[in-house]
């Protein structure tokens, strides 16, 4: 397969993640869309690494996976703190830092 096909799939995944990030309002879905974008970038890394016969790309992808896992842990902890006890999960309703009024 040509590498451009892999890059096309990675681009589609990245843009789908960005689209979901912009139109969805559920914070859990937003975190999942961020994961989609990480994975799109990762696929580009691995595909180009295969083309260049470079193992460094795999190390970079590994770093991205690890950082994404750490980000998910922290992000979900913050979500639990902010949305615990609320009936709706909607990022538009978070106003903890705003003025009361």
């Amino acid at each position: 397969m040509p590498l451009a096909a892999y890059l096309l799939v990675s681009l589609v995944l990245f843009v789908l993640g960005g689209l979901g990030l912009m139109i969805r309002r559920n914070p859990l879905v937003l975190l999942m869309c961020v994961e989609l974008m990480w994975n799109g970038a990762n696929l580009a890394f691995v595909a180009l690494g295969r083309g260049l016969e470079a193992m460094s790309a795999h190390v970079f992808a590994f770093v991205v996976i690890t950082v994404a896992a750490a980000e998910v842990a922290i992000g979900l902890a913050i979500l639990v703190l902010v949305f615990r006890g609320k009936a709706r999960q909607d990022v538009d309703e978070v106003n903890l830092l705003g003025e009361r009024g």
Binding site: M1, P2, L3, A4, Y6, L7, L8, S10, L11, F14, V15, A47, L48, R50, G51, L52
Partner: peptide
């Protein structure tokens, strides 16, 4: 914006 970057990459996955 990103499409032209992707499709011009040469090389194949062996």
């Amino acid at each position: 914006a990103l499409l032209p970057v992707g499709v011009v990459v040469p090389g194949r996955a062996e």
